[in-house]
Simulated assay, not measured.
Amino acid sequence: STDNLPLPVQADVRDWLWDKLVAQYGEAEALTIGRSMHEQATLDLRVNTIKGNREEVLAKLIAENTSGVTNITTTPYSPIGIRMPNRLNIGRHILFTEGKIEVQDEGSQLLSYLVAPKRGMMVADFCAGAGGKTLALGALMRNTGRLYAFDVSEKRLHNLGQRLKRSGLSNLQAQVISSETDPKLKRLNGKFDRVLVDAPCSGLGTLRRNPDLKWRQTPQDIAELNVKQANILARAAKLTKGGGRLIYATCSLLRDENETIAEQFLATHPDFKLLNAAEILAQQQITLDTGDYLKLLPHLHNTDGFFAAVFEKQESAKPEPKPAPESAPVAEA
Score class of each variant (00 low, 15 high):
152 V>D: 01
139 A>N: 06
136 A>I: 05
164 L>F: 09
148 Y>G: 00
145 G>Q: 08
182 D>A: 10
158 H>M: 14
143 N>Q: 06
183 P>C: 04
170 S>R: 15
150 F>L: 09
184 K>C: 07
180 E>Y: 15
150 F>S: 00
166 R>D: 02
126 F>W: 04
140 L>A: 01
140 L>F: 02
150 F>A: 00
167 S>N: 06
162 Q>V: 14
133 K>H: 00
144 T>R: 07
165 K>H: 12
131 G>F: 11
139 A>G: 09
184 K>A: 09
166 R>L: 10
134 T>R: 07
176 V>W: 11
159 N>E: 14
181 T>Y: 14
132 G>V: 07
173 Q>R: 15
145 G>W: 11
145 G>L: 10
128 A>C: 02
155 K>C: 04
128 A>Q: 04
178 S>Q: 13
124 A>L: 11
153 S>G: 02
129 G>I: 08
123 V>K: 07
132 G>T: 04
152 V>G: 01
168 G>A: 06
177 I>A: 03
139 A>D: 05
178 S>D: 12
154 E>S: 13
124 A>F: 15
174 A>N: 10
161 G>S: 08
157 L>Q: 02
150 F>W: 11
174 A>C: 12
123 V>E: 01
159 N>V: 10
141 M>A: 00
125 D>C: 04
135 L>C: 05
134 T>W: 09
134 T>S: 11
148 Y>K: 11
148 Y>P: 03
154 E>I: 08
136 A>W: 07
141 M>T: 00
146 R>N: 13
148 Y>M: 13
176 V>I: 14
144 T>W: 13
169 L>D: 02
128 A>K: 09
163 R>Y: 06
163 R>M: 07
155 K>I: 12
175 Q>N: 11
126 F>G: 00
158 H>C: 11
179 S>C: 06
136 A>P: 03
181 T>A: 15
135 L>S: 03
125 D>H: 05
122 M>T: 13
154 E>P: 09
134 T>N: 03
